[in-house]
Design a protein around this nucleic acid. Sequence first.
DNA 1: TCGTCGTGCAATTATGTGGTTGCAGATCGA
DNA 2: TCGATCTGCAACCACATAATTGCACGACGA
Lengths: 124, 124
Amino acid sequence: MSAAPSEARPAPLTAVFAALGDDTRWQILVRLGAEPASASALSTEFPISRQALAKQLEVLRGAGLVEAERHGRELRYRAIGAALGEAARRLERVASGWDERLAAIKAAAEAAAPAEAGAERHRE
Amino acid sequence: MSAAPSEARPAPLTAVFAALGDDTRWQILVRLGAEPASASALSTEFPISRQALAKQLEVLRGAGLVEAERHGRELRYRAIGAALGEAARRLERVASGWDERLAAIKAAAEAAAPAEAGAERHRE
DNA sequence: TCGTCGTGCAATTATGTGGTTGCAGATCGA
DNA sequence: TCGATCTGCAACCACATAATTGCACGACGA
């Protein structure tokens, strides 16, 4: 069933953000965005152990933010910019409707109590 | 445009994503995006306690994703769509450079080993 | 072949965090 | 004033997780 060439799973939005929400992981991701690297190579640049790096890389991979490629005996990770862009697009899409809708609601609320904008009474 | 009355701090990107990375918080945020509500009101719609809601709302507020407004004795929270849009924009900005740069690096690597694209040998 | 380097798996630890209950204080309606 | 709510603070618990160390396995170079 896993005939997908790379990562075809959309990975739930919250999972992606959870992956992005860790400082260490974010730094790793940015680093990989500059240039692919293996866990061992990263361990020389980061203050944490190689195994810790490997775990975080696995999390990022699970979120679809990086992909791994074998080069001989080393696993080289690279950031997937498209995944980040996709998350950004989804985020913006969710956000787009809010301000408009909420402004309408706010206006309606103020129209219902024009003399008490900001501290309307519930008497009606 | 610069005289934001409440939250003028940009809130670190990772903090915003950490806030978005929790399933419960995401649902709360979406709910508030549909219509403002107080913690008590939300507690009737969510399967968790009011205090748990209050904590999550505080996290969202710390991330600049929601803002609270007093209406009498109740605190009404509303989602800030602009904050989400800002996060999305920052995300896309970071992502934009990657694919391009990484494609160039990949091309260079393949040019260095044209006969072994995908499994180059390290001899010579 | 042998030594080295990089990876993978497992067990352990410490801290963070999402959730709960309980109680005190403030505010609204009657 | 009195009762009903809604908020705010604090202690507490359970679980997730970020990081560690240790060891075994496989691939590369000499």
